[in-house]
Measured scan of single mutants.
Amino acid sequence: ELREAFRLYDKEGNGYISTDVMREILAELDETLSSEDLDAMIDEIDADGSGTVDFEEFMGVMT
Protein backbone atom coordinates (compact mmCIF):
# COMPACT_ATOMS: atom_id res chain seq x y z
CA GLU A 1 0.00 0.00 0.00
CA LEU A 2 2.83 2.43 0.82
CA ARG A 3 4.60 1.51 -2.40
CA GLU A 4 1.43 2.36 -4.34
CA ALA A 5 1.21 5.72 -2.57
CA PHE A 6 4.88 6.36 -3.35
CA ARG A 7 4.31 5.54 -7.02
CA LEU A 8 1.52 8.11 -7.18
CA TYR A 9 4.03 10.84 -6.33
CA ASP A 10 6.96 9.32 -8.26
CA LYS A 11 5.35 10.28 -11.55
CA GLU A 12 8.49 9.66 -13.62
CA GLY A 13 9.09 6.25 -12.05
CA ASN A 14 12.68 7.06 -11.16
CA GLY A 15 12.56 5.72 -7.60
CA TYR A 16 12.45 9.01 -5.75
CA ILE A 17 10.38 12.11 -5.21
CA SER A 18 11.68 15.62 -4.72
CA THR A 19 11.75 17.18 -1.28
CA ASP A 20 9.37 19.83 -2.68
CA VAL A 21 6.79 17.13 -3.41
CA MET A 22 7.39 15.55 0.01
CA ARG A 23 6.83 18.95 1.59
CA GLU A 24 3.46 19.21 -0.21
CA ILE A 25 2.48 15.73 1.02
CA LEU A 26 3.32 16.62 4.62
CA ALA A 27 1.44 19.90 4.37
CA GLU A 28 -1.64 18.05 3.07
CA LEU A 29 -1.44 15.50 5.90
CA ASP A 30 -1.20 18.17 8.59
CA GLU A 31 -2.36 21.64 7.59
CA THR A 32 -1.26 23.07 10.96
CA LEU A 33 2.46 22.63 10.23
CA SER A 34 4.38 25.86 9.94
CA SER A 35 6.96 26.49 7.24
CA GLU A 36 9.69 26.05 9.86
CA ASP A 37 8.20 22.72 10.97
CA LEU A 38 8.10 21.53 7.37
CA ASP A 39 11.73 22.58 6.82
CA ALA A 40 12.83 20.67 9.92
CA MET A 41 10.89 17.58 8.88
CA ILE A 42 12.35 17.64 5.37
CA ASP A 43 15.87 17.99 6.79
CA GLU A 44 15.23 14.93 8.95
CA ILE A 45 13.60 12.89 6.19
CA ASP A 46 16.27 13.68 3.60
CA ALA A 47 19.08 12.54 5.89
CA ASP A 48 21.60 12.24 3.06
CA GLY A 49 20.87 15.77 1.81
CA SER A 50 20.24 14.58 -1.73
CA GLY A 51 17.20 16.79 -2.28
CA THR A 52 15.16 13.69 -2.98
CA VAL A 53 13.22 11.16 -0.93
CA ASP A 54 13.58 7.51 -1.91
CA PHE A 55 11.12 4.78 -0.95
CA GLU A 56 12.97 3.83 2.25
CA GLU A 57 12.97 7.44 3.46
CA PHE A 58 9.30 7.73 2.49
CA MET A 59 8.45 4.57 4.45
CA GLY A 60 10.22 5.95 7.49
CA VAL A 61 7.93 8.96 7.46
CA MET A 62 4.69 7.15 6.75
CA THR A 63 5.03 4.36 9.31
Rank of each mutant, 00 (worst) to 15 (best):
F6A: 08
D54L: 06
S35A: 12
L8I: 13
L29E: 03
T32W: 10
S50G: 05
T52P: 01
Y9L: 15
N14G: 03
K11C: 12
D43M: 14
R7W: 11
E1V: 12
L33P: 01
G60S: 13
D46C: 03
L26R: 00
E56K: 09
E4P: 09
L26W: 03
G49I: 03
M59R: 11
L33C: 04
G15H: 02
D37I: 10
S35V: 11
G51T: 03
D54T: 14
A47D: 05
F6L: 07
L26P: 00
L29I: 10
G60C: 12
L29M: 14
E1W: 15
D30V: 08
F58V: 03
E24S: 14
T63F: 07
M41W: 15
L26M: 06
S34C: 04
Y16H: 07
L33F: 06
A5S: 07
E12L: 08
D20R: 11
N14A: 07
D46S: 04
M62H: 04
D46L: 03
L2N: 02
G51H: 06
G60W: 15
G15Y: 02
N14D: 06
E36Q: 12
E31W: 12
A27M: 13
F58N: 01
D43N: 14
L2F: 11
I25A: 04
Y16G: 01
D30H: 12
E36Y: 10
L2T: 02
E56D: 11
T19R: 09
A27Q: 12
E57V: 12
G49Q: 11
M59N: 06
V21D: 12
L2M: 10
S35T: 10
G15R: 01
Y9T: 02
L8A: 15
L38N: 00
A47L: 10
R23E: 01
E57A: 15
N14H: 10
S18H: 08
G51P: 01
E1G: 13
V61F: 15
S35D: 12
V53T: 01
M41K: 08
F6W: 12
D10P: 00
L33N: 02
D48H: 07
I17R: 00
T19W: 05
D20F: 07
I25N: 00
E36L: 09
E57P: 01
E24N: 14
V21I: 13
I25M: 07
T19Y: 12
G51C: 04
L8H: 15
N14K: 13
R3P: 03
D48G: 06
A27I: 11
S18E: 04
D48T: 08
G60N: 13
V53I: 15
D20Q: 14
D30T: 06
V61W: 15
G49E: 07
M62S: 03
G60D: 10
T63D: 07
M59A: 13
F55T: 02
S34Q: 06
D48A: 08
M59Y: 12
F6T: 09
S35Y: 08
I25C: 03
E57R: 14
L2C: 15
V21R: 11
E36H: 09
M59H: 07
D54E: 07
R3A: 13
T52E: 05
L8F: 15
D10E: 02
L29H: 09
F58D: 00
G51W: 02
Y9F: 08
D54S: 15
E56L: 10
V53R: 01
E31D: 13
V53W: 04
E24K: 15
L2A: 06
G13P: 00
G15W: 03
F55P: 01
Y16I: 05
V53Y: 02
I45S: 02
T32F: 09
V21M: 13
T63L: 14
L33Y: 07
R7F: 13
R3E: 15
S34W: 04
L29R: 13
D48N: 10
D54M: 09
V21W: 05
G60R: 15
L8N: 15
D37V: 09
F58T: 01
R23T: 01
L26C: 02
L38H: 01
E24P: 01
E57S: 13
D10R: 00
Y16R: 05
E4Q: 06
L33I: 07
F58Y: 09
I42V: 07
T63H: 11
E24I: 14
M22I: 07
Y9H: 10
A40R: 14
E44R: 14
T63I: 13
L38G: 00
E4Y: 06
Y16S: 06
A5P: 02
L38M: 07
A47T: 10
M41N: 00
A27C: 07
E4S: 04
R23M: 03
E36W: 10
I17V: 07
M59F: 12
D46F: 03
A47H: 12
N14T: 09
T32V: 04
I25K: 01
K11D: 06
D37E: 13
A47P: 10
A47N: 08
T32L: 08
A27V: 10
L38V: 08
R7I: 15
Y9M: 09
D46G: 03
T63G: 13
D37Y: 06
E31T: 13
E57T: 14
S18T: 12
E24Q: 15
R7D: 15
M41D: 01
D43S: 13
E4F: 05
T32D: 08
R3V: 10
D37F: 06
L29A: 08
Y16C: 02
L8K: 15
A27G: 08
V61T: 07
D43A: 14
K11P: 14
D54N: 13
R3H: 11
V21T: 11
E36P: 05
L8C: 15
Y9N: 04
D43F: 12
T52K: 09
V61Q: 05
I25P: 00
L8D: 15
R3S: 09
E28W: 09
R3F: 11
E44L: 14
M62V: 07
M41R: 08
E56N: 11
V53S: 01
K11T: 13
V53A: 01
A27W: 09
D37G: 06
D10K: 00
I42Y: 01
T52M: 08
D10L: 04
D46H: 03
I25R: 02
D48R: 07
F55Y: 10
E56H: 11
V61S: 08
N14E: 04
M22S: 00
F58P: 00
A5K: 15
A47Q: 11
E12N: 07
F55V: 07
S18W: 03
G60F: 14
L2S: 03
F58Q: 00
D39Y: 05
D39M: 07
S50K: 10
L33R: 06
D46K: 04
S34I: 05
M41L: 13
M22D: 00
M22Q: 00
T63E: 10
L2P: 03
L29S: 07
D39I: 06
G15P: 02
D30P: 02
T63S: 12
D48V: 05
D46T: 03
E24G: 13
G51Q: 05
D10S: 01
F55E: 06
S34P: 02
V53F: 05
D20Y: 05
S34V: 05
E1P: 10
I42T: 02
I45Y: 05
F6S: 08
T63C: 13
L2Y: 10
S18Q: 05
G13L: 05
M62N: 03
K11A: 10
E1A: 13
D30F: 14
D43C: 13
E44G: 11
A5I: 15
I42P: 00
V53N: 00
R23S: 01
E4N: 06
T19A: 07
T32A: 08
S34G: 06
L38C: 02
L38S: 01
R7Q: 15
E4L: 06
R23A: 02
T52Y: 07
Y9Q: 04
L38Q: 01
M62L: 07
E56R: 09
F55H: 02
L26S: 00
A27H: 12
E57W: 07
F55R: 02
E4A: 08
S35I: 11
A5T: 13
G51F: 03
D30Q: 07
D37Q: 13
I25Q: 00
T52H: 09
A47W: 12
F6M: 08
I17S: 00
V53E: 00
F6V: 09
E12H: 06
M22R: 00
G51S: 04
K11G: 06
E28C: 14
M22F: 09
F55G: 01
A27Y: 11
M41C: 06
L33H: 04
E4T: 05
G60K: 15
V21E: 08
D37L: 08
L29Q: 08
L26N: 00
D54V: 05
M41P: 00
L33T: 03
G49P: 02
I45C: 03
D43T: 11
T63K: 12
R3G: 10
R7V: 13
D20W: 07
R3C: 15
D37C: 12
M41E: 02
I45L: 09
L29F: 11
Y9I: 09
V21N: 10
V21C: 12
L26D: 00
I45A: 08
S18A: 08
E1C: 15
D20N: 11
A40D: 07
